[in-house]
Nucleic acid binder design. Structure first.
Length: 417
RNA sequence: GCGAUCGUAGCUCAGUUGGUUAGAGCGCCGGUUUGUGGUACCGGAGGUCGGGGGUUCGAGACCCCUCGAUCGCCCCA
């Protein structure tokens, strides 16, 4: 290990080869699906004023104080690398006049940053797909978003082993009533809870529900259920979401312990989870955040959205492998490099992927060419002082004579022989 | 922030209870043979064994510190 080479920043990744192909495959599939559902593409800044995130998330949480990449710019302004998409999009909705397009369906993807300890499927710079519907209060919006997520996972070929867990947090009042009941329930057995959960009881009681500690699980089973606190409207809303999912053919299961840590979440909450990624099982998650836009100083605006970790999806997708070239052009005699460059240019213009090999001994050049497993190898050598082309077909490429096509192209002749 | 495991050539790894000039495969470079060519053979470059300190006659192996990686806890917008 050289002393002088700077190390990559902890939690960042250099993605290469088959992994990069899998990553691109995820993004390309998302782009295709998002158009099917008519979500409009947006590009967002990677950093915002810190308050965009701190106000929406809540000043007090650990999330804001410890887990954001915040820094001061030269003017003394506190800025933060985006830890999520939603807050920035909500800000743009207000500052860019996007309210005129409501209900607005938007999609984007890109890097996000969180100051966390890296582990499997978890990085400091990571990447997400994101889809939001802003200004739509009806349950159909939730359904459409979930149907899109479901189709995405299916088309990525990873739906097997991934399940949609669904819950409702109810409206503001339902949620509050449930929360107090939970606090009361757990406070009664406080001393028997894990240390972590005793702290959660004060800071974030809903989170006790998904504690991994067996000491807590004992009391989670008979904890109050949200269903007993839902208002008639909230119950009706959730019912319509469930019905819609049924109509859309989206399979799901109820998880009454699925919660959100932040107060602006209402009604629908969901996660697509797998057990194939160790401790980081959530592959796509989201919910309705009717309270968010108000925290940024906007009017009450219902909205719902989800985000999905690209590297987690890419891990499930598995190796996509890199394409092999269609043609490898081997320069056997260095006198004809120019001809080879002209020829490979024609190949590429005609839509064939091609690589040029012109280093090493002639023998090694052919070895290298063969190793790339191309459909054909084209080679130029000297004969009577001039260049002469040869083509060798390495594998079948359909019902046409690929070698002949390549030969015509490299030789610069498009006439019939 | 906490815990466990790990850190030997570009990559994947060997390296016996601490004992001579630290090895293999792949890759890379060169060559031989084959003379229209993927698989054979020979050779070469490349490592202060993550870094620092300590124990010892002697440390890649043992101890401490440090950095990094992996996985997990916390947190998860």
């Amino acid at each position: 290990m050289s002393q002088k080479t700077p190390q990559a920043i902890r939690g960042t990744q250099d993605i290469f080869g088959a992994e990069a192909e899998a990553f691109a495959y995820v993004v390309e599939t998302f782009e295709r699906i998002r158009k099917l559902y008519r979500f409009r593409r947006i590009e967002m800044p990677v950093f915002e004023r810190t308050e965009v995130f701190s106000r929406s998330i809540g000043e007090t949480t650990d999330v804001v104080s410890k887990e954001m990449y915040s820094f001061e710019d030269r003017g003394g302004e506190s800025l933060t690398l985006r830890p999520e998409f939603t807050a920035g999009i909500a800000r743009a909705y207000l500052t860019d006049g996007w309210q005129q397009y409501a209900p607005l369906k938007v999609a984007t993807h890109g890097p996000l940053f969180r100051y966390e300890r890296p582990q499997k499927g978890r990085y400091r710079q990571f990447h997400q797909l994101d889809a939001e519907i802003i200004g739509a209060a009806e349950p159909q919006a939730d359904v459409e978003l979930l149907a899109m997520a479901d189709q995405l996972l299916k088309e990525l070929g990873i739906a097997e082993g991934v399940t949609l867990q669904l819950n409702t947090l109810g409206d503001g009042n339902s949620r509050e009533a449930w929360r107090s009941a939970l606090v009361e329930h757990f406070a009664g057995v406080r001393g028997e809870l894990s240390e972590d959960s005793q702290e959660r009881l004060d800071k974030n009681p809903l989170r006790i529900l998904d504690s991994k500690d067996p000491r807590d699980k004992v009391f989670v089973g008979d904890a109050p259920k949200i269903d007993d606190f839902l208002s008639a409207e909230a119950q009706d809303y959730f019912g319509k979401v469930c019905d819609g999912l049924g109509a859309a053919g989206v399979a799901w299961e109820r998880n009454p312990a699925l919660v959100r840590g932040l107060d602006y979440y209402r009604h629908t909450a969901f996660e697509f989870v797998t057990d194939r990624l160790g401790a980081q099982g959530t592959v796509l998650g989201g919910g309705r955040y009717d309270g968010l836009i108000e925290t940024l100083g906007g009017p009450h605006t219902p909205a719902v959205g989800w985000a999905a970790g690209i590297e987690r999806l890419a891990m499930l997708v598995g190796d996509k492998g890199e394409d092999t070239p269609e043609v490898v052009v081997v320069v056997e005699d260095d006198a004809f490099v120019t001809e080879a460059i002209a020829a490979i240019t024609r190949l590429r213009s005609d839509g064939m992927s091609a690589v040029l090999i012109a280093t090493g001994s002639p023998k090694k050049r052919f070895d290298k060419a063969a190793k790339m497993n191309p459909a054909a190898i084209a080679f130029v050598r000297s004969q009577d002082g001039g260049p002469i082309w040869g083509v060798r077909e390495m594998r079948e490429k359909g019902d046409f004579d690929f070698a002949l096509i390549v030969h015509r192209t490299v030789a610069g002749s498009f006439n019939k022989p």
